Simulated scan of single mutants.
Amino acid sequence: MEKRLNVFEKGQSALKSLFGAGGYLKKSPVETQLQELVDVRVSQINGCAYCLDMHYKEARAKGETEQRLYGLNTWRETPYYSDRERAALEWAEAVTKCDVSDAVYSQAKAQFSDEELIDLTLVITNINTWNRFNIAFPNTPGTYTVGQFG
């Protein structure tokens, strides 16, 4: 098997916009912990081991519980997510799968302002892009340390 290039070493120019989006989202009114939950859920859907490792660690460092992280695959059946978190997770799944119904949109709009919904969508599309980069150009899961990318 051919060794794949390291996108973090070779793709700095291309990745600048993604890092810029991440910087913008740090100032977003969408809560950081909620962003991490969304990052984990989308990474589960896409099967990105490196991003799962990263965002589990980041979420734990920001105070998220293991129970809530372990339950993300089955969030609909668990009692420990708020209505706002449930709307965000539903929105994340729908946007990731490119299947946003009017019902899902209405549920999201009931929980998020216009600015927040735009920012939440950017969280989702940003992690989807990172997932695809890390699947195409794999990094070793388990090597990420909290705060590694700022």
Rank of each mutant, 00 (worst) to 15 (best):
G20K: 09
T74D: 08
G142M: 04
C48F: 14
V38N: 05
Q12R: 14
T78S: 06
S17L: 12
N131L: 09
T65H: 15
T145R: 15
R76S: 10
L72D: 07
K27H: 07
Y80I: 02
R132L: 13
L117Y: 07
A108C: 03
E85Y: 09
E66D: 13
D39W: 12
N73S: 14
E93K: 06
F19N: 04
I135F: 10
L89S: 14
K97M: 11
W91E: 01
W75A: 02
C48Q: 03
V30Q: 11
L18S: 00
L34I: 03
R84Q: 13
L117E: 02
K27E: 09
E115W: 00
Y105R: 01
V95Q: 04
N6L: 07
L37V: 01
S106P: 00
A108S: 04
S113L: 08
L18D: 00
V95N: 08
T32L: 15
S17T: 11
A49H: 03
L72W: 11
D99I: 01
K62A: 15
E2N: 09
L52K: 10
E58W: 12
D102Q: 08
A136N: 05
C48G: 08
V40K: 02
L18V: 04
S113M: 07
Q12F: 15
C48N: 06
L37G: 04
